[in-house]
Design a protein around this nucleic acid. Structure first.
Length: 426
DNA sequence: TCTGGGGTCCTAGGACCC
DNA sequence: TCTGGGGTCCTAGGACCC
């Protein structure tokens, strides 16, 4: 049998983070909203019980929210990112080899624990809980796909007490016979429909389906999933973080952008943020795409979308270079009068691709890069780190920020703003 | 009328994930 | 009125090469 892999997954992570800092949220229904307070992206158990679904748009659940007094919070990603790091720090003490898979999930190599494995898993949960206040569940299995499934079982079935060990074949068989195929990692809506059409409804049926049929329905991806459900490892633990291939900054606007200048202000802000992300990771981009579009949820209104790309030569992470590239893209995509072309654009973004490490970037033969431009970017980052985001911005970002995202219910910046720290009175 | 074969690389779009 | 954001991987098909 392959060495066991554990998946430790935080329960209702964003809600749990909020509850750590506001005890009044414990025991009551809570949801956390996406950017622009658009959709519910995290729900407490109480909110799930009231029928709030993942991704439900706020305007559709407003009645339920009000009727049951559900606490709705804007998302506070800085807080969640900080809490996530603390969880990973605790998990790291239990194994030399871990893979941080997402903001709230980490795979853990459990080889070498032998008969103490379950004890270790329990200690790991306790440690995370004590250090961060975040509740978790753990799934253990021979493969990642099975570990995900075990984690699902640990969350849904109280009989497991928060830890499900699928290295025990009886446990694996018990779960696979009962869990719906759509819960499997890698089986989305389309694949699920195709599987149902074949009469495959449970995880056990998926596990037992012939490989050629799996490949026909869902390419090598589904074939791998079937193998992993049989305990054959196709996906290794990735304990070194792979280099990013691309990065994006995209936002819905608080109110529709009507003029070229409004759109350009938003795109300037997005490109500025994208450049900053590159510098933070020591990368430069070879390609930039800028896009914008009207509201696709309103098909009865006239629609327009545009996306334009450009090479960045030499590859760069300089804010001025990326903003001017983005501007050229937007100019090429804009149609009609710059004062307004009859469309209200609700979303825009900047995507950077073909990223390489700064030191690997080819040097230009004839253009000598201005050595002061790197110094200027460094100074810009330092000012904004020290005095807060957007202390210093390009003038083309504007000051009205009519496009800015709404966040009416944001919790305080507990972990990043001294002034927002909770006060204890004794 | 007949019109090679085999390979690589790139891109767009689809599906999925959290 | 009001519907998130940021990623990955795979495939098919076209361009291009010898």
């Amino acid at each position: 049998m392959a060495d066991p892999i554990a998946l430790i997954d935080c329960n209702n992570f964003y809600v749990s983070c909020e509850r750590v800092f506001d005890r009044r949220l414990i025991g009551v229904p809570v949801i956390v909203l996406s950017n622009n307070d658009g959709c519910a992206i995290a729900r407490s158990e109480e909110a799930k019980a009231l029928g709030i679904k993942m991704g439900d748009p706020m305007f559709k659940i407003r009645d339920t929210v009000q009727r049951h007094g559900i606490r709705a919070l804007s998302s506070n990603y800085t807080l969640y990112g900080d809490m996530s790091r603390r969880v990973v720090d605790a998990v790291n003490e239990f194994s030399p080899s871990v893979e941080v898979y997402s903001i709230d999930e980490t795979f853990v190599d459990m080889s070498g624990f032998g008969g103490r494995m379950l004890r270790q898993a329990a200690d790991m949960r306790d440690c995370v809980r004590e250090r961060t206040g975040i509740p978790t569940c753990v799934g253990i299995a021979p493969t990642k796909t099975m570990a995900k499934l075990a984690n699902h079982a640990a969350k849904k079935n109280p009989v497991f007490g928060g830890i499900c060990d699928m290295t025990d074949e009886r446990v694996a068989a018990f779960c696979m016979n009962r869990i719906a195929v759509g819960e499997v990692w890698g089986v989305g809506r389309q694949t699920q429909a195709k599987l149902h059409a074949q009469g495959i409804n449970t995880v056990a049926q998926l596990r037992d389906m012939p490989f050629p049929l799996a490949r026909k329905i869902g390419s090598v991806v589904l074939e791998r999933t079937v193998a992993e459900l049989r305990g054959v490892r196709c996906m290794d633990l990735q304990d070194v973080e792979p280099q990013r291939k691309g990065t994006a900054v995209t936002r819905s606007a608080g109110e529709p952008m009507v003029t070229f200048d409004q759109l350009m202000q938003a795109v300037t802000a997005h490109a500025t943020r994208a450049a900053q992300k590159l510098r933070r990771h020591g990368l430069v981009a070879n390609q930039l795409t800028a896009f914008f579009h009207t509201n696709p949820h309103k098909p009865e209104r006239p629609q327009h979308s545009a996306s334009r790309s450009t090479d960045i030569s030499p590859p760069s992470n300089n804010t001025f270079a990326l903003v001017s590239s983005a501007r050229r893209c937007i100019e090429r995509g804009w149609k009609g009068d710059r004062g307004g072309n009859g469309h209200g654009y609700t979303k825009a973004g900047v995507i950077l691709e073909d990223l390489i490490a700064e030191q690997d970037a080819p040097k230009q033969l004839f253009e000598i890069e201005n050595p002061r431009s790197a110094q200027l970017m460094h100074a810009l980052d330092q000012v904004n780190d020290r005095f807060g985001k957007k202390t210093m911005v390009l003038a083309s970002e504007g000051f009205k920020r009519t496009w800015a995202t709404k966040a009416d219910f944001r919790s305080p910046r507990y972990t990043t703003r001294l002034s927002d720290l909770p006060v204890v009175r004794v």
